[in-house]
Simulated assay, not measured.
Amino acid sequence: MISIIIPAYNEEKSIKDTVQRVFFVCKNSFKEYEVIVVNDGSTDKTATVLESFKTSHLIILNRGFNRGYGASLKEGIEYAKGEVIAITDADGTYPIEKIPQLINDVEQGFSMSVAARKGRYKNTSLIKSVPKFLLDKVANVVAGQKISDINSGLRAFRKKDVIPFFNIISDKFSFTTTITLSYLSNGLSVSYIPIEYRKREGKSKVKARDGFDFVNLILRTIMYFNPLRIFAPVALFLMGIGVLKFVYDLFNEPYLNITPSVIFVFLSGLQILAIGMLADLIRTTRK
Rank of each mutant, 00 (worst) to 15 (best):
M1E: 12
I5Q: 00
A8H: 07
E12Y: 12
K13G: 07
D17N: 14
D17C: 09
D17K: 13
T18D: 09
R21Y: 02
R21V: 02
V22S: 04
V25N: 10
C26W: 02
K27D: 15
K31R: 12
K31M: 09
E32N: 13
Y33V: 09
I36W: 08
N39E: 15
K54P: 00
S56K: 09
G70K: 00
G70E: 03
A71G: 02
S72A: 11
S72P: 00
I77E: 01
K81E: 08
V84G: 01
V84I: 14
I87S: 00
I87P: 00
G92W: 01
P95G: 01
Q108M: 12
G109V: 04
G109A: 05
F110E: 03
F110S: 04
S111A: 11
V114I: 15
R117M: 06
G119V: 10
G119W: 12
R120C: 13
K122N: 14
S125G: 08
I127Q: 15
K128P: 07
S129R: 09
V130Q: 10
P131H: 07
P131S: 10
P131Q: 10
K132C: 12
F133M: 14
K137A: 07
N140H: 13
G144N: 12
Q145F: 02
K146T: 13
K146C: 08
I150C: 10
N151L: 09
L154K: 05
R155P: 01
R155I: 06
A156I: 04
K159C: 09
K159H: 08
D161V: 06
D161R: 07
D161A: 06
P164G: 06
I168W: 09
I168L: 08
S174M: 11
F175Y: 14
T176H: 03
T178D: 03
S185N: 10
G187F: 05
S191L: 08
Y192E: 07
I195A: 00
R200E: 05
E201G: 02
E201L: 06
G202C: 11
G202Q: 09
S204G: 15
F214S: 06
V215Q: 09
L219S: 12
L219M: 14
L219P: 01
N226S: 09
N226W: 00
V234P: 05
L238V: 01
I241S: 04
V243D: 07
L244A: 13
L244Y: 08
P254Q: 08
I258C: 06
I258Q: 04
S261C: 09
I263L: 11
F264D: 08
L267F: 14
S268C: 03
L270N: 07
L273V: 06
I275E: 15
G276I: 07
M277F: 13
L281H: 02
I282L: 14
I282A: 12
I282C: 11
R283D: 00
T285E: 09
T285F: 11
